[in-house]
Computed example of a mutant assay.
Amino acid sequence: MLILNSNSKTKMTNLKNFIKKIFRKFGYDLVRYRPDSHPVARLARLIKFYQIDNIIDVGANTGQFVSLLRDQIGYSGKINSFEPLSSAFKILEIKARNDQLWTVYNYALGDFTGEAEINISENSYSSSLLNMMQAHLYAAPNSKYISKENITIKTLDSIFINIASSQDKIFMKIDTQGFESKVLKGAENSLKKILLIQLEMSLVSLYEGEILFEDMLGLMKGYGYRLVGLVPGFADLSTGHLLQVDGIFSREPSP
């Protein structure tokens, strides 16, 4: 076993700090990959602990979350992705073509079944059914809306039987740019069968009519969930203010 004296430890610490400084100069960082310090490692541990075998990916865009699941976490179970934008869905569909356990759907999930008009942002992933607030535009000018598209909306409750069985251990991720509470409203019956939920929560108003962080915590508690994780998200680079986080919730055991 290698034993380092205090002088060697000091040199090792200085070397680590020097390497970190170089990486950070180019916009990177070195972080230990374990559940107490790395969000991907923590998500992997949650998926393993709850034995998740069916993931519902709401607001899939071009499949960024699935790439994380498959390539970084190594999740090999079922995935059902929902993406209403036709341009993003074309890319999503191509990516899912050779994955037999990944099914994609070209519609949104919400609190009603019907048609609606979605605002398409320049960067695609900021597109929303809600109007964008000035705070969002100020922090991310490339999120501005550039067009609109008519889309289909369904409730999760109306299609749940088609994507999950009573034996499935389900994790749902919701990334719908302020529309998260509407997705939950349309899934009230399905939530009883969903073990984990990850969703975006805004600390300030980014989309008109969205539910903010504190109220979302209360809403999730009312649905029978408790907060088990937080992941920093969208921030204003000019001020350093955090504007949005991802909250991870687990279903409380029935009394």
Rank of each mutant, 00 (worst) to 15 (best):
A164G: 11
S128C: 07
S143L: 05
T176C: 14
M132S: 12
N142A: 10
Y138I: 14
K154W: 02
D175F: 07
I159R: 01
N131K: 14
I153N: 06
S165C: 13
I170C: 05
D157P: 03
A135V: 10
S158E: 12
I151K: 02
S166A: 15
L156I: 10
Y138R: 14
D157N: 09
E149R: 09
S127Q: 01
K154R: 14
I170F: 04
N142T: 09
S127W: 01
S126Q: 08
K144S: 14
H136V: 04
A140K: 10
E122C: 00
Y145N: 13
L156N: 00
N123E: 12
N162Q: 15
N150D: 07
Y145P: 01
Y138N: 13
S128F: 03
Y145K: 13
D157G: 12
S127F: 02
L129I: 09
I146R: 13
A140F: 10
N162F: 09
F171H: 05
T155I: 02
N142V: 03
H136W: 10
A135E: 15
S143Y: 08
I163N: 06
F160E: 04
L137M: 10
D157L: 11
F160D: 10
I151W: 02
N142W: 02
E122P: 00
I153C: 15
D175E: 15
I161T: 15
Y138H: 11
Y138K: 14
I174R: 07
M132T: 11
F160V: 11
F171I: 08
M172S: 08
I151V: 13
S121C: 05
I170A: 04
Y138C: 02
A164S: 15
Q134P: 00
T176K: 06
N162P: 00
S165D: 14
S124H: 11
I153V: 15
K169M: 10
L130K: 13
S166Q: 15
S126D: 07
I151M: 02
T155H: 03
N123Y: 10
D168Q: 11
A140T: 11
K169Q: 15
H136Q: 15
T176P: 08
Y145G: 12
L129H: 09
M132G: 03
K148D: 06
I161R: 15
I163P: 00
S124E: 09
Y145Q: 13
A140E: 06
I161W: 07
A164D: 06
N142R: 11
I174Q: 03
K144Q: 13
K144I: 12
M172G: 10
S124G: 00
S124P: 00
S127V: 02
K148L: 04
I161N: 15
Y145C: 12
